[in-house]
């Protein structure tokens, strides 16, 4: 079975220059198979990088990567609706739908279903598949036992199946911007304060424990999902695509470790040691996969 390594869309509001440099290095140096591009969190951020996507996508493709364009996850305002409709007209690249409003536009045409879309079971997968969905990124909270069941349905349909194996977990989205709120502002006059936090704004409990990360309207986990020790189980569940979600760390090194373990060039134990050496500023977790609290890290035999 194919084991494709993918890079999810950047959830954070990194400066345009940072994004450009990031993707240049991914294009030239990172052994990922597929890269998702697009502003998924906030429509207000979109103009900062909109014009750069074509060149970035070309460069990634020249580097041998398949490029998929990701949609917004929240669609409510006129502008957001137009962005979704516009994306759904793209016909020279694959698109990933992250909000159910996109389903109206793409019925009957090939598309991918993103991780914010609540595909939890075989029946939902089948309904979307007959309407043109060829690939499903599952919700980050899906336990491994359910992934294995849906994996059979995806394989029977010949559809791609994707699971997040690295990066902070997206735990919630809202109509309200919590970054703006922390600074006494509203979404309309946010002044893009989220740009100051390339890895999200940390929320710490009153007991002093780091707990969550705020990224505009999105709430992320403090812990960093890491399924490196579970990759054999993930593969056995019928997963074809392994998603790394970018964060403010050495993503090239992360890509390298996952590539080597997936391809059998490094053992899980070697990979784990290399991940520990990266000194990522977050504890690792794999609780969701093991049907435990998402923040937990379950030690697995390697």
């Amino acid at each position: 079975m194919s084991r494709k390594l993918t890079l999810g869309p950047i959830p954070f509001h990194w400066p345009a220059e940072t994004k450009r440099d990031f993707y240049a290095r991914i294009a030239d140096e990172a052994p990922v198979d597929e890269v998702y591009l697009g502003e998924v969190i906030c429509s207000k951020r979109a103009p900062f990088f909109e014009r750069a996507y074509a060149a970035v996508a070309d460069r990634l493709e020249r580097g041998g990567k398949r490029v998929i364009l990701s949609s917004l996850s929240e669609v409510m305002t006129k502008r957001e609706r137009q962005m979704m409709a516009g994306l759904c007209e793209v016909d020279d690249r694959e698109i990933e739908i992250n909000n159910n409003s996109g389903l109206l536009h793409v019925s009957g045409r090939t598309h991918r279903i993103g991780p914010m879309m609540n595909v939890y079971n075989e029946r939902t997968l089948a309904v979307l598949h007959v309407r043109g969905a060829t690939h499903f990124a599952l919700p980050v909270e899906m336990p491994g036992h359910a992934v294995a069941r849906i994996g059979q349905a995806a394989a029977a349909a010949g559809a791609g199946l994707e699971v997040q194996v690295f990066g902070r977990a997206s735990l919630a989205v809202s109509a309200r911007c919590y970054h703006a709120r922390a600074h006494g502002r509203t979404k309309d006059n946010c002044q893009f304060v989220c740009e100051d936090d390339p890895d999200g704004m940390p929320l710490t409990t009153l007991a002093g424990e780091p707990f969550l990360r705020i990224n505009g309207i999105q709430t992320l986990s403090q812990s960093c999902v890491n399924l490196l020790g579970d990759l054999d189980d993930v593969a056995a569940s019928g997963v074809t695509h392994y998603r790394l979600v970018p964060q403010d760390t050495d993503m090239l090194a992360v890509v390298g470790v996952f590539r080597d373990v997936l391809d059998g060039r490094a053992t899980g134990a070697e990979g784990a040691a290399r991940m520990d050496a990266l000194d990522i500023a977050a504890p690792f977790s794999n609780g969701f996969w093991h049907a435990r609290p998402g923040a937990h890290h379950v030690r697995t035999a390697r």
Partner: peptide, 19 residues
Amino acid sequence: MVEGRCSLTNYVTGLSTNM
């Protein structure tokens, strides 16, 4: 939070609001 899109409880307790 956008209802039907929140895994905060599951992150802490292992029980999912959605499932």
